Simulated assay, not measured.
Amino acid sequence: MAAEVFTLADLTRIVLEAAGGGESVDWGDEKVLDTEFEALGYESLALLETGGRIEREYGISLDDEALSDMPTPRALIETVNAHLSAAARTV
Protein backbone atom coordinates (compact mmCIF):
# COMPACT_ATOMS: atom_id res chain seq x y z
CA MET A 1 0.00 0.00 0.00
CA ALA A 2 1.45 3.34 -1.01
CA ALA A 3 -0.01 5.42 1.83
CA GLU A 4 -2.33 5.21 4.80
CA VAL A 5 -4.35 8.29 3.85
CA PHE A 6 -5.53 9.30 0.38
CA THR A 7 -5.47 13.09 0.00
CA LEU A 8 -6.60 15.74 -2.45
CA ALA A 9 -3.00 15.95 -3.67
CA ASP A 10 -3.05 12.19 -4.39
CA LEU A 11 -6.35 12.49 -6.24
CA THR A 12 -5.12 15.49 -8.23
CA ARG A 13 -2.01 13.65 -9.38
CA ILE A 14 -3.94 10.53 -10.37
CA VAL A 15 -6.78 12.39 -12.12
CA LEU A 16 -4.33 14.41 -14.18
CA GLU A 17 -2.34 11.28 -15.09
CA ALA A 18 -5.45 9.25 -15.88
CA ALA A 19 -7.70 11.76 -17.57
CA GLY A 20 -5.57 14.79 -18.27
CA GLY A 21 -7.30 18.11 -18.64
CA GLY A 22 -7.93 20.14 -15.57
CA GLU A 23 -6.19 23.23 -16.91
CA SER A 24 -9.11 25.36 -15.75
CA VAL A 25 -9.38 23.55 -12.40
CA ASP A 26 -7.60 25.03 -9.40
CA TRP A 27 -6.84 21.76 -7.64
CA GLY A 28 -5.07 23.69 -4.88
CA ASP A 29 -8.33 25.38 -3.84
CA GLU A 30 -10.17 23.26 -1.30
CA LYS A 31 -13.48 24.41 -2.83
CA VAL A 32 -12.78 21.82 -5.51
CA LEU A 33 -13.54 19.13 -2.92
CA ASP A 34 -17.27 19.86 -3.12
CA THR A 35 -17.49 20.64 -6.82
CA GLU A 36 -19.06 17.90 -8.93
CA PHE A 37 -16.65 16.08 -11.21
CA GLU A 38 -18.87 16.91 -14.19
CA ALA A 39 -18.54 20.62 -13.41
CA LEU A 40 -14.77 20.11 -13.25
CA GLY A 41 -14.89 18.62 -16.77
CA TYR A 42 -14.57 14.93 -15.86
CA GLU A 43 -17.14 12.42 -17.10
CA SER A 44 -17.71 8.83 -15.95
CA LEU A 45 -15.04 7.33 -18.23
CA ALA A 46 -12.42 9.63 -16.73
CA LEU A 47 -13.53 8.55 -13.26
CA LEU A 48 -13.35 4.88 -14.20
CA GLU A 49 -9.77 5.33 -15.44
CA THR A 50 -8.95 7.27 -12.28
CA GLY A 51 -10.49 4.51 -10.16
CA GLY A 52 -8.45 1.88 -11.97
CA ARG A 53 -5.25 3.74 -11.25
CA ILE A 54 -6.20 4.19 -7.60
CA GLU A 55 -6.94 0.46 -7.32
CA ARG A 56 -3.58 -0.51 -8.80
CA GLU A 57 -1.56 1.99 -6.80
CA TYR A 58 -3.25 1.48 -3.44
CA GLY A 59 -4.19 -2.21 -3.70
CA ILE A 60 -7.91 -1.73 -3.09
CA SER A 61 -11.03 -2.55 -5.09
CA LEU A 62 -13.57 0.14 -5.96
CA ASP A 63 -17.00 -0.69 -7.36
CA ASP A 64 -17.21 0.64 -10.95
CA GLU A 65 -20.88 1.56 -10.65
CA ALA A 66 -20.38 3.43 -7.38
CA LEU A 67 -17.29 5.10 -8.82
CA SER A 68 -19.16 6.42 -11.85
CA ASP A 69 -21.81 7.81 -9.46
CA MET A 70 -19.22 9.52 -7.25
CA PRO A 71 -20.33 13.16 -7.35
CA THR A 72 -17.36 15.07 -5.92
CA PRO A 73 -13.66 14.74 -5.14
CA ARG A 74 -14.52 14.75 -1.43
CA ALA A 75 -16.81 11.73 -1.88
CA LEU A 76 -14.14 9.85 -3.82
CA ILE A 77 -11.43 10.66 -1.28
CA GLU A 78 -13.67 9.53 1.58
CA THR A 79 -14.50 6.29 -0.24
CA VAL A 80 -10.84 5.53 -0.96
CA ASN A 81 -9.90 6.26 2.66
CA ALA A 82 -12.68 3.98 3.91
CA HIS A 83 -11.31 1.17 1.72
CA LEU A 84 -7.74 1.85 2.88
CA SER A 85 -8.88 1.80 6.50
CA ALA A 86 -10.75 -1.47 6.02
CA ALA A 87 -7.74 -3.02 4.27
CA ALA A 88 -5.45 -1.93 7.12
CA ARG A 89 -7.73 -3.58 9.68
CA THR A 90 -7.55 -6.92 7.83
CA VAL A 91 -3.76 -6.99 7.68
Rank of each mutant, 00 (worst) to 15 (best):
residue 79 T to E: 10
residue 66 A to P: 09
residue 26 D to I: 04
residue 67 L to H: 04
residue 80 V to K: 03
residue 47 L to E: 01
residue 39 A to L: 12
residue 54 I to Y: 05
residue 14 I to L: 11
residue 34 D to E: 12
residue 25 V to H: 08
residue 17 E to P: 04
residue 42 Y to N: 07
residue 49 E to N: 12
residue 28 G to T: 14
residue 63 D to L: 11
residue 25 V to L: 09
residue 15 V to W: 01
residue 50 T to S: 07
residue 57 E to T: 10
residue 63 D to W: 08
residue 16 L to G: 01
residue 16 L to S: 05
residue 39 A to Y: 04
residue 47 L to S: 03
residue 33 L to P: 02
residue 29 D to K: 03
residue 45 L to D: 07
residue 31 K to C: 04
residue 67 L to A: 05
residue 63 D to H: 09
residue 22 G to D: 05
residue 19 A to K: 03
residue 52 G to Y: 07
residue 28 G to H: 08
residue 6 F to R: 03
residue 88 A to V: 00
residue 13 R to V: 14
residue 44 S to R: 04
residue 43 E to I: 06
residue 32 V to C: 01
residue 57 E to W: 04
residue 65 E to T: 10
residue 23 E to H: 14
residue 2 A to S: 13
residue 86 A to E: 13
residue 24 S to K: 09
residue 85 S to F: 12
residue 52 G to K: 11
residue 72 T to D: 06
residue 87 A to P: 02
residue 11 L to I: 06
residue 84 L to M: 10
residue 49 E to V: 10
residue 41 G to M: 11
residue 46 A to F: 01
residue 14 I to S: 03
residue 33 L to S: 02
residue 67 L to V: 06
residue 75 A to E: 01
residue 53 R to L: 14
residue 86 A to H: 09
residue 66 A to L: 13
residue 58 Y to S: 05
residue 11 L to S: 00
residue 42 Y to D: 08
residue 20 G to L: 10
residue 71 P to S: 06
residue 65 E to D: 13
residue 74 R to K: 10
residue 50 T to A: 03
residue 55 E to V: 10
residue 9 A to V: 14
residue 45 L to A: 12
residue 58 Y to D: 03
residue 41 G to R: 08
residue 2 A to D: 14
residue 38 E to S: 06
residue 89 R to D: 09
residue 39 A to S: 13
residue 53 R to Q: 15
residue 34 D to N: 13
residue 7 T to I: 12
residue 76 L to S: 01
residue 66 A to Q: 13
residue 27 W to K: 05
residue 63 D to I: 10
residue 35 T to M: 12
residue 45 L to P: 02
residue 25 V to K: 06
residue 35 T to S: 11
residue 1 M to T: 15
residue 70 M to C: 13
residue 25 V to F: 08
